[in-house]
């Protein structure tokens, strides 16, 4: 570590006037605001942010807080998903509604472990469906996460783009029934996929709401390492092998003002193909390079 005697206060830099140059500089031209959703070029008073800008921030914060605590509107979502599935073919039952062991939002926020586990009846339903002789190639899980709004607005639209890509590119892939999980976290997808004997799982989940994005959807792609369970020491029999974040790939910020559904679906397909090829996910798989021509997209067919 560099260390030396601090004598800078005796140097020529002592003038506070210089710093005032920055404080007194003209505000950024408001024209720059069209290039980013970030809060740039805010009106100032002294060094502080002006009243109208402060109120706009408070409103956005209030909306994000409300999004965190909102409950998933299940009937609407199920209906939207059903309407996609009428034109796709999944084994019956095509959609399952499941629940984590976190009974409510307050518990969910403070006990992430409960949001990662299915409750008993949910687990039972999966076990009934699972047939060991016919494992699934892919399980798709939809979880409310930290924004039910994100799931309601984006999950059906994303799957509408993804299913045709999947069937065109990987026609023999066996897709498990869609699982909608209430009060679920990312890792609950691991338990769902294991119960269904699926080697790969993608989890569509409501991301932590930001001030300008209360409805942002994230997608996590995880290869399940089938067979690794045998290595778990006996002492941890109640906690299934935990998968590290570095072993997942993530696509973030899927919403109308962010990453569009078609582009997100192409990226998901890329990861699904890479994961199946290399039998792994995570930091070993790099993001597709810009300009990557996704297999299965219109340009390449």
């Amino acid at each position: 570590m560099t260390k030396f005697v601090d004598n800078s206060s005796k140097t020529e830099f002592a003038s506070l006037e210089k710093q005032k140059a920055a404080e007194d500089a003209p505000a950024l031209s408001s024209a720059f605001r069209s290039f980013t959703p970030a809060r740039i070029g805010l009106h100032k008073t002294g060094v502080s942010i002006a009243t109208q800008e402060c109120l706009a921030f408070q409103f956005a914060h209030a909306r994000a807080r409300d999004a965190v605590h909102a409950e998933l509107q299940v009937p609407g979502l199920m209906q939207a998903l059903q309407s996609i599935l009428t034109v796709q073919s999944l084994p019956e039952p095509a959609i399952l509604l499941l629940h984590s062991t976190a009974p409510d939002r307050q518990t969910y926020l403070q006990r992430p472990d409960m949001g990662r586990k299915l409750d008993i009846s949910s687990l039972q339903r999966l076990v009934e469906i699972h047939r060991a002789d016919k494992p699934f190639g892919l399980s798709i899980v939809i979880a409310d996460g930290l924004s039910a709004l994100a799931v309601e607005r984006n999950s059906a639209a994303l799957l509408t783009e993804l299913f045709p890509l999947l069937y065109r590119t990987l026609p023999s892939l066996r897709v498990a029934p869609l699982c909608v999980v209430q009060q679920g976290r990312v890792a609950i997808g691991d338990e769902v996929a294991r119960a269904l004997s699926a080697e790969l799982v993608i989890v569509l989940i409501g991301e932590r709401p930001g001030l300008s994005s209360p409805d942002s959807l994230g997608v996590y792609i995880t290869w399940l390492h089938p067979g690794k369970e045998e290595e778990i020491p006996a002492s941890s029999e109640h906690t299934p092998a935990q998968i590290a974040d570095a072993d997942r790939n993530c696509i973030s910020n899927i919403r109308s003002e962010g990453l569009c559904h078609a582009e997100a679906a192409s990226r998901i397909l890329y990861y699904i193909q890479e994961a199946r090829l290399r039998k792994q996910t995570g930091t070993a798989l790099k993001d597709p390079e810009p300009g990557h021509r996704y297999l299965g997209t219109a340009e390449s067919t």
Binding site: L16, Q19, A22, E23, T36, P37, A38, R39, I40, L42, K44, V47, S48, I49, E53, F57, A60, H61, E207, R208, P209, G210, L211, S212, S213, S216, N253
Partner: peptide
């Protein structure tokens, strides 16, 4: 910008917050 990170979805401190601190503590 404005303490609102539009990519990571969390709130931090703004450019203005730093200038407040510089001014109040010299």
């Amino acid at each position: 910008p404005g303490a609102d990170d539009v990519m990571l979805n969390y709130q931090s401190t703004s450019f203005h917050d730093a200038n407040y601190l510089r001014r109040i503590l010299g």
